[in-house]
Simulated scan of single mutants.
Amino acid sequence: MKVIVDEEKCCGAGSCVLLAPEVFDQREDDGIVILLDAEPAADQHALVREAAAVCPGAAIEVSEQA
């Protein structure tokens, strides 16, 4: 799995951080997403997919190819 985030689309809701804190974080000044792990371990895949699905700004893209 490969994860890409688009900071321009991020609205700072933080749902990704709540679901997958090992993969996502937020900037302190404006809450915009920070990608901590672009190729998360298999045990994080379901959480990352869920984070992408619930992202209100559609800022998270997930590719199933490594």
Rank of each mutant, 00 (worst) to 15 (best):
I60M: 03
E7D: 14
G12I: 11
A52H: 08
C11N: 15
K9Y: 11
C16Y: 05
M1D: 05
R27V: 01
M1K: 08
E39G: 00
A38W: 00
C16L: 11
I60K: 02
Q44F: 11
E50M: 14
G31C: 03
S15E: 10
M1E: 06
P56Q: 08
E28H: 02
P56V: 07
V3A: 02
D6G: 07
G31E: 01
E8K: 15
E28Y: 03
Q44L: 10
R27L: 03
G12K: 10
E28L: 08
A41L: 12
S15T: 05
E8Y: 11
Q65Y: 00
V62M: 05
A66H: 01
A13E: 13
A58Y: 10
S15Q: 12
E8H: 13
F24N: 04
K9C: 09
D25L: 05
D30F: 06
D43C: 09
L18K: 15
E39Q: 07
D37S: 11
V62W: 04
P21A: 10
C10Q: 07
I60C: 02
G12R: 09
A38V: 00
M1P: 08
V5T: 15
A38C: 00
E7F: 08
D37C: 07
A59H: 12
D37G: 04
Q44Y: 11
S15Y: 12
A20T: 12
A58G: 11
L35Y: 02
Q65N: 01
P21S: 09
A46R: 08
M1N: 05
M1I: 10
A52V: 10
I4W: 00
A38M: 00
C11V: 15
D43A: 12
V3C: 01
L36D: 04
E28W: 03
V62N: 02
D25R: 10
L36K: 14
E28M: 03
L19F: 09
L35C: 01
A38K: 03
G57A: 09
V48R: 09
D43Y: 14
A42T: 06
C16Q: 09
D29K: 03
C10T: 07
L35R: 02
L18S: 15
A51M: 12
E39W: 02
D6I: 11
E39D: 05
L19H: 07
G31V: 02
V5G: 07
L19M: 12
G14V: 06
C10N: 08
A20L: 14
A20F: 13
C10W: 05
A52W: 06
G57W: 04
C16K: 04
C10L: 10
C11L: 15
L18W: 14
V23A: 06
D43K: 14
I32D: 00
K9D: 08
Q65V: 02
V23Y: 04
C55T: 05
A42S: 06
A51V: 11
E22Q: 13
D25S: 15
E64H: 12
E7L: 14
E64L: 14
V23D: 05
P56S: 10
C16E: 05
S15W: 06
E8F: 13
E64M: 13
V33D: 01
R27S: 00
A52M: 11
Q65L: 00
A53K: 10
P21G: 08
C11G: 13
A51P: 10
S63G: 08
A13P: 01
C55G: 07
Q26C: 09
A59G: 14
M1H: 11
V17T: 13
A58R: 12
R49G: 12
D29L: 04
L36T: 06
A66L: 02
V23G: 04
R49D: 14
